[in-house]
Design a binder for these strands. Sequence first.
DNA 1: AAAGGGATCAACCGCCCAAGC
DNA 2: GGCTTGGGCGGTTGATCCCTT
Length: 332
Amino acid sequence: MGRPPCCDKEGIKKGPWTPEEDISLVSYIQEHGPGNWRAVPTNTGLHRCSKSCRLRWTNYLRPGIKRGNFTDHEEKMIIHLQALLGNRWAAIASYLPQRTDNDIKNYWNTHLRKKLIKLQAAGGGTEGLHSKDQGNSNSSSQAISRGQWERRLQTDIHMARQALRDALSPEKPLALSSDLNPADGFSISNLKNPTLDQSSNSTYASSTENISRLLKGWMKNPPKKSARLTNLANNQTDYQHYSSSEGTTSVANTANSGNVELSDTFESLFGFESSNSDLSPSMSPEASLFQGESKPDLISGQLPLSFLEKWLFDEGAAAAALGKDHFFSDTI
DNA sequence: AAAGGGATCAACCGCCCAAGC
DNA sequence: GGCTTGGGCGGTTGATCCCTT
């Protein structure tokens, strides 16, 4: 019984993705939209399993993905949501629309879990986490007892639940959408099927922002790692294609004639300007819509954020709630 | 400068669930 | 109702980076 692994077939490539593969995938999705992943490898000629294509898209190529350092605010969100939801990374990611579940999971496993353990071992709470510079956190907050920390956590959980109940309450549908401005092109139908309605071209074109950002990254940082990875994974690829000086593309060192002018292809395909060094993680409206495709929980993803922000991070409210015994009778 | 080991993160694996037949 | 399939999710792995000795 059981399903045969989808990647068991011979000739299925594994390992790091090359820019060529990324481009194939992105251009295919630009045309057809995400979904029907089974058809992607055959239609693109990629020697990857469908799952790998989906993962690559959702975790790295999808527009609107923010990479790099997590902000204090994001850290707090993750910590609270992890306490609230457990290791349901996809659910947590739905509250951080610019982050992927994989990213959050990695960040939790590599940073936050250790941080929490360390803090709790030191008798602290999340207070220390509220500042990246833990050395500056004041001693009184560090001295918070584990009991207090747990009580506060319980409070937060309760309040978050309450907020979610309120948010999901049919009596308050507008509360959820109050931040949505129809003038910005928002509509439920867009959320349900972002590939329809509005020009799907512009929607999918936004994915180019993301991949171009990635490619720019490769170009900017002479990809030591990438080159190694690529050489390991695919000796035919030469990342010198992507290296450049002053941001101009170069096709020097072309080892594979099939890849000639690949960097030019990037430019024509994605149209990024090498002079544009703004890699700030902004998400275009199209991107946010597009993102909704793979994160269909956009409504409950973005909008409750304000609720949760308000409730989860309002420490004053939490502290005030601590005094209310009825709360504990409710939650314990 | 080199070696060792911990940290990081992209990618894979296996399981689960829902939809379609 | 049972089986198959596609897609999603969380856990884990392994290559690479980076810091310390």
